[in-house]
């Protein structure tokens, strides 16, 4: 089963949050180290599965959820190191921990794609691309939420503490430099969009191809395709507006939030309401 292994990084992440209660510079530093330790453990577990099962499709729901959590954490760690914004770990790690707990508690159900005859490589690539794209959009979603709240604070000039002791401690501990700054948050959001969009585009195209193969026709439009295309369109418009017209700031953040909410909706829609449309029995 090996499901119990999921609890190890999940427990590490949850424990790390307990440290934040102390509100000390040292504990903030320890918090970050523990989060990274959690990620290393998650990676180890991932490789254990890889060694045991080989490079195969995550055919069980719990594995799928675990794989999703690992990719999300991997992307967030990369961004936090590259942009020196370790504070995003503060917001993403709970999502990852929840994912791991879900992975532990869901039954070890075998997903039986009805498209076993279809090229497994395409299906695997479809899943991988969509997960990477969605993880990037999840990060963009979180960063956009931070942006919206932070921008609101600055615009309304309320609860905006310039020299908040706590903020200074977090700032020093998490190497934030200037702390939460709108330009950086907007930039991360843009990068997530720029990198995530091609992944999601190719992923959706592969999905449509797989769906066509599954239903033996490309003519019938399935609900999952409609929702996916709407989501894709939102991100396409956002990318176009950003690149061509220089849209940025709050409006771009709202778009990102809306896009990701639609992704969540389409995922729930496809997996829980109409599993058949997603090639699941």
């Amino acid at each position: 089963m090996l499901k119990e292994l999921y609890l190890v990084p999940a427990a590490v992440y949850i424990f790390s949050y307990a440290l934040l209660l102390f509100k000390e510079k040292k504990t903030y530093k320890a918090f970050i180290s523990i989060i990274y330790t959690g990620f290393v453990l998650q990676t180890l577990i991932f490789f254990i599965f890889l060694i045991i099962k080989g490079l195969t499709l995550p055919v069980h729901i719990d594995r799928f959820v675990f794989f999703n959590a690992w990719i999300l954490m991997f992307i967030v760690v990369l961004f936090s190191l590259f942009y020196k914004v370790e504070y995003i770990l503060l917001y993403i790690t709970p999502l990852v921990a929840i994912n791991l707990l879900v992975g532990f508690f869901v039954p070890h159900i075998h997903l039986r794609p009805v498209i076993l005859n279809v090229d497994k490589a395409i299906l695997f690539t479809h899943i991988l691309l969509i997960l990477i794209g969605d993880s990037l959009f999840a990060l963009a979603f979180i960063v956009s939420l931070i942006y919206i709240f932070q921008e609101r604070k600055i615009k309304n000039k309320k609860n905006l503490k310039l020299f908040d002791k706590k903020d200074v401690q977090i700032s020093t501990a998490l190497h934030q430099g200037g702390g939460y700054n709108l330009e950086l948050l907007d930039n991360i959001n843009y990068q997530c969009l720029k990198i995530g969009f091609p992944f999601i585009t190719v992923g959706i195209i592969m999905g449509i191809y797989l769906s066509g193969t599954l239903f033996k026709t490309f003519i019938i439009i399935k609900p999952i395709e409609i929702i996916s295309l709407i989501t894709w369109l939102i991100y396409a418009v956002l990318l176009h507006e950003r690149m061509a017209k220089g849209m940025r700031g709050k409006r771009a953040a709202i778009f990102s939030v809306a896009g990701f909410l639609l992704i969540l909706f389409s995922l729930s829609f496809s997996f829980y309401l109409f599993p058949a449309f997603h090639g699941l029995k």
């Binding site: 600055i154 310039l162 200037g178 702390g179 939460y180 700054n181 709108l182 950086l184 930039n187």
Partner: peptide, 9 residues
């Protein structure tokens, strides 16, 4: 300090 909250550097 305020400009550092808006701009990245």
């Amino acid at each position: 300090e305020l400009s550092r909250k808006i701009f990245n550097g």
